[in-house]
């Protein structure tokens, strides 16, 4: 995945910011735009520019999104994230699907999506508070991951683009 970059350099290092879940987004964006201003194909022209620019975009996108950032940190830690999906998770996903299927009107579904979105932002906040507690961090991450995936599947699919 890491192109033209020493394998040792992780996404945080690329932007010169500390490897922490609690990062300063405006600081990250500033560093990203500054680097992109030198690497983007429109300002360069060299063959490798596009690859460097793509790497910056992948790295920025990963760190900007709280869920992806948490996952990336867990991966950096060497945690096996798939193992953290317990039977509990599967049951909760099933619960969400059941609940969704029972909703009849568009309004009810919109309200439920609203609840889930609020839950998502609560989880994102509490990830920040539990960064120093790996056990709790992983637990919150797992819930966030399935709620987010569920929202993407049902909510965005429901009123997203035109096909």
């Amino acid at each position: 995945m890491l192109l033209n970059t020493p394998m040792a350099m992780n996404y945080f290092e690329i932007f010169g910011i500390p490897a922490s879940y609690n990062l300063d987004v405006s600081h990250l964006t500033e560093a990203y735009l500054q680097k992109q201003g030198r690497s983007h194909p429109d300002v360069g022209g060299g063959a490798s520019d596009s690859e460097d620019s793509a790497l910056l975009n992948v790295a920025y996108g990963t760190l900007l999104n709280p869920l992806k950032r948490a996952e990336y940190l867990l991966n950096l830690d060497g945690s096996d994230i798939s193992a953290t999906s317990s039977d509990d998770t599967a049951a909760k996903i099933f619960e969400l699907r059941e609940k969704w299927a029972s909703l009849e009107s568009r309004g009810e579904r919109a309200r439920f999506c609203g609840e889930l979105r609020r839950r998502t932002s609560d989880l994102i906040d509490s990830l920040g508070k539990h960064e120093k507690n790996p056990e709790e961090f992983r637990k919150i991450f797992c819930e966030l991951r399935y709620v987010d995936a569920f929202l993407e599947k049902v909510a965005d699919g429901d009123d997203g683009g035109w096909y």
């Binding site: 995945m1 194909p41 596009s50 793509a54 790497l55 975009n57 992948v58 996108g61 683009g161």
Partner: peptide
């Protein structure tokens, strides 16, 4: 995913 900045590459 939609809204990913371009250029981009994923495997």
């Amino acid at each position: 995913h939609r809204n990913s900045p371009i250029p981009i590459m994923e495997r």
